[in-house]
Simulated scan of single mutants.
Amino acid sequence: MSDAELTVGTAGPVATIVISNPGRRNAMTAAMWRRLPVLLDRLEADERIRALVLTGAAGTFCAGADLGDLDELLDAGDASIAVAAEDRLAAFARPTVAAISGACVGGGCQLAVACDLRLAAADARFGVPPARLGLVYPAPTTRRLTRLVGPSAAKHLLFTAELIGAERALRIGLVDEVLPPDGLAARVDAVTATIAERSRLSVTAAKEIVDGRADEERIAWWHGQVRASGEAREGVAAANERRPPRFGWTPPATG
Rank of each mutant, 00 (worst) to 15 (best):
G255Q: 12
R144V: 07
E72W: 15
I81H: 14
L184N: 01
F92G: 00
G12S: 13
E177D: 12
G235S: 06
S2D: 12
D189Y: 07
G230R: 08
G68N: 11
V178S: 01
T55Q: 10
T204M: 12
E162G: 11
F126S: 00
R24H: 14
E234N: 04
A30D: 09
D71V: 15
L6N: 05
V53K: 01
N26Y: 01
Y137R: 05
A185Q: 10
G59L: 03
A166P: 03
L148K: 11
P181W: 04
P181Q: 11
A57Y: 05
R187N: 02
L157A: 04
A185G: 11
S152P: 15
D71Q: 15
S20V: 08
G106H: 03
A131H: 06
R50V: 08
R233S: 13
A232C: 13
L148D: 05
G150N: 06
S2P: 09
C104P: 01
E208D: 14
I81D: 14
D41A: 13
I100R: 02
S101M: 07
A228V: 07
R246A: 15
A31W: 10
A124H: 02
R243H: 06
A196L: 04
G77F: 09
K155N: 13
A15K: 05
D69N: 14
C62A: 07
D116H: 06
G77Y: 09
A239M: 12
G77C: 09
P140W: 01
I19G: 00
T160I: 05
G134P: 01
L163W: 10
P244F: 06
L135R: 04
C104F: 00
A186W: 06
R218H: 11
T141H: 09
G59D: 03
A161F: 02
D189V: 07
I172R: 02
D215P: 03
L67M: 12
A169N: 03
G224K: 04
G12R: 12
L40W: 03
A90I: 11
A193H: 02
D176I: 01
S20R: 14
I100G: 01
I100P: 02
A90D: 11
P245A: 08
D215I: 10
A45H: 07
G56E: 00
R50S: 13
L201E: 02
A206I: 11
P140M: 06
E167Q: 14
A90Y: 14
L158N: 05
L67C: 09
A51V: 07
S199T: 05
A237D: 10
A153L: 06
A205L: 07
